[in-house]
């Protein structure tokens, strides 16, 4: 990471702490907002967030490791979260997963780490009445089949 990148991150963290308050209870919103911008929370930034909130960096790491939607490893541009609850599984999730894995691996070919798509399997996302369902970043998609999944993927590229 260049000094310039570090400076940008430190300043962004400072602005978040100003917004949410220098308080332990601001930790999750700060991490969430940081991740929204930089996709994951690197070691340098964990230290900076810890300093800005006057807590130990290991506390910051502990929080990131506890919550499924916080990451300390680099991630691609988009995250597809496919629901793996039994209702979705019984209503087309298996076919959907197979299709998405194939399409996404084609998509990711020859792409830099930064522009790749990540697929994750997550617990119930509350769309069982419209299964199979998935989240693409912060958008919800319901009743997905290979046909509309193709269109969703095209939107991402």
């Amino acid at each position: 990471m260049t000094d310039k990148d570090k400076k940008i991150k430190t300043e962004f963290i400072a602005s978040l702490v100003r917004l949410y308050g220098k308080d332990r209870s601001s930790l999750l919103p700060v991490l969430q907002e940081f991740q929204k911008k930089f996709r994951y929370i690197d070691e340098y930034s964990q230290q900076e967030i810890a300093d800005a909130l006057s807590i130990h960096p290991v506390e910051v790491n502990s929080i990131i490791s506890f919550y499924a939607f916080l990451y300390d490893k680099p991630r691609g541009k988009h995250t597809i979260r496919i629901c793996k609850n039994i209702v979705c599984k019984f209503h087309g999730n298996k076919e959907l997963s197979k299709f998405m894995e194939k399409k996404v691996s084609e998509f990711n070919k020859d792409k830099s780490e930064e522009s790749k798509i990540t697929i994750e399997y997550v617990n119930c996302i509350g769309l069982c009445d419209r299964s199979p369902s998935m989240l693409v970043d912060e958008k919800v998609y319901e009743k997905i089949n290979p046909h509309n999944a193709e269109a969703i993927l095209e939107e991402l590229s």
Binding site: N85, I86, V87, N123, C124, G126, L127, C128, D129
Partner: peptide
């Protein structure tokens, strides 16, 4: 924090 699998009434 409606997380119980199969629950979506709060949505």
């Amino acid at each position: 924090d409606e997380g119980e699998p199969g629950t979506f009434k709060d949505r």
